[in-house]
Design a protein around this nucleic acid. Structure first.
Length: 506
DNA sequence: GCCTACGATTCA
DNA sequence: TGAATCGTAGGC
């Protein structure tokens, strides 16, 4: 296949021999017999004719699909460009945070024709599991799904033709094996011999591949379609003559098997179901407790705002200046935890708070999602950073990066509620000027942060409990799901198929 | 023969 | 130069 980008390599006008040249000497191409109009064109290897991409419905992207020993370039996985991010190969990739040990491309991108079977065998497993995850909830949401819905979902999940392959195989995978590559290096191979052997192997494989493809195309033995009442011959590499026949057979099987399986299920008691119910009860109790705690914290939130409002109404007591200066007049020095400079204990709180804010504001803590908690006010800062495309996730009251402490007016009073024995409120307020009070520096901010932090904790707890509830519910619903009922037993549909167990018995 | 790990190669 | 991925050694 040739693309227009490759035209420089074959300077002579392509397909000139069979193209008509019009009056202005512009060569005509394609089925439309029009000249090259500066669009994407693709050339045929066989006839050397050039075609406009849009005339033959081939896009530049499609044409660029790679072909190799492991890629046919035509099947769905070959044309797929995105990694699923879920399979073991994806999870191994560095871009998905993996160790890069397996180094294989995504299972969903392994060619169905040419990739090695081991690279795609689990693809079926994986995609089924993935599809199953999508199908079961779809069925759960319908209390009485119509048989057509059930059948379509089931059949699609089962795979169109291949019903012999172990789908979500319960067989555990083999353990990882460590390879001693050092040994390999130490071994002295006869290189000539090795490469000759390699070439022979390659030739053999190529021969096999060609013969396989040949077989696939022309079909070995002709088999009759397994579709109900169908007398046609099956398609190559399939048991059915058409998708329709496969669907009909699958529908028949569901009609035949499902009612019996449902009856069986209903007759047997389920311990896991009982445990699930107990777990749900526990989760609900914890949710209730968390909600009560949240209500309590909301009440404290409003209470604190009331205290702060009341504190602001206090009047400054002038003689406090003397008390402030005469106490603790010592040479004692402590070191700031942020900048490690020696500071006077009297101003330590003020200094350390500012120093911390200075360093803290140089870092960002962001998430790509804005906070969406219904009914919660003033929790996270949530300022959007266009550069990193993230929302700030510090507590709003404690975020030095996006909010500065308001400037204190000269006549503002400290107003911190005074306490006795650390916790008992005396009902009085500190009436020192806010600018001069070193004892209660930023008390509103710290008290607000205390309440907000607890509120955040309770929200996290609630979120965790919702997640637990969802998991338990999903597990309970899936237990008697359609796929589970249909798949968790072995049925010998075809009496001619060799049943290994019966062989053993004999 | 399956599977993992990793050197080698290709490509952007 | 690094990411992607191919091909294969070697354990089981």
């Amino acid at each position: 296949m040739l693309f227009d980008s490759e035209m420089s390599d074959i300077d002579q006008t392509p397909a000139m021999h069979n193209s008509v040249v019009d009056g202005e000497n512009a060569p005509l191409y394609c089925i439309c017999r029009k000249p090259d109009i500066n669009c994407f064109m693709i050339g045929c290897d066989n006839c050397n004719e050039w075609f406009h991409g849009h005339c033959i419905h081939v896009t530049e992207k499609m044409a660029k699909v790679k072909r190799s020993a492991r890629m046919c370039g035509e099947c769905e996985p070959c044309t797929r460009t995105e990694d699923c991010g879920q399979c073991d190969f994806c999870k191994d990739m560095k871009k998905f945070g993996g160790p890069n040990k397996i180094r294989q491309k995504c299972r969903l991108r392994q060619c169905v024709v040419r990739a090695r079977k081991m690279l795609r065998v689990r693809d079926e497993e994986f995609s089924l599991c993935e599809r199953k995850d999508n199908i079961i909830p779809a069925l759960i949401n319908k209390p009485h799904p119509s048989l057509v819905t059930v059948f379509c979902l089931f059949f699609k999940s089962w795979g169109s033709d291949d019903e012999d392959g172990p789908l979500c195989s319960p067989v555990p995978r083999k353990k990882a094996i460590k390879v001693k590559h050092v040994k390999r290096r130490n071994k002295k191979f006869d290189k000539k011999k090795e490469s000759r052997r390699h070439k022979q192997k390659q030739k053999h494989r190529d021969r096999l591949r060609h013969s396989e493809r040949g077989d696939g195309r022309h079909g070995g033995d002709m088999q009759q379609c397994l579709g109900p009442n169908c007398i046609e011959s099956a398609r190559p590499n399939s048991k059915y003559c058409s998708e329709d026949c496969g669907m009909k057979l699958a529908a028949n099987r569901i009609y035949e098997i499902l009612p019996q399986r449902i009856q069986q299920w209903q007759q047997s008691p389920c311990i896991a179901e009982e445990q699930g119910k107990k777990q749900l009860e526990r989760i609900r109790r914890e949710q209730q407790a968390a909600r009560m705690r949240l209500a309590e914290m909301e009440r404290r939130f409003h209470e604190l705002e009331g205290i702060i409002a009341k504190a602001k109404q206090q009047v400054i007591q002038q003689d406090e200046d003397v008390n402030e200066t005469d106490s603790e007049d010592t040479d004692l020095q402590i070191f700031c935890v942020s900048c490690s400079h020696p500071i006077n204990p009297k101003v330590a709180l003020r200094h350390m708070e500012r120093c911390y804010a200075k360093y803290e504001s140089q870092t960002s803590f962001g998430s790509i999602f804005p906070t969406r908690i219904e009914g919660a006010t003033r929790l996270f800062c949530d300022v959007y950073n266009a550069q990193s495309k993230t929302y700030c996730k510090r507590l709003q009251v404690l975020c030095p990066e996006h909010s500065r402490d308001p400037k204190v007016a000269a006549d503002e009073v400290c107003g911190c509620p005074l306490v006795r024995n650390v916790f008992e409120p005396t009902g009085e307020y500190c009436r020192v000027s806010k600018r001069k009070c070193n004892k209660h520096y930023c008390w509103e901010k710290l008290r607000r942060a205390e309440v907000d932090l607890e509120r955040v904790r309770v929200w996290y707890k609630l979120d965790e409990l919702f997640e637990q509830e969802r998991n338990v519910r999903t597990a309970m619903t899936n237990r008697a799901g359609l796929l589970a009922l249909m798949l968790h037993q072995t049925i010998q549909h075809d009496p001619l198929t060799t049943d290994l167990r019966s062989n053993k018995d004999r």
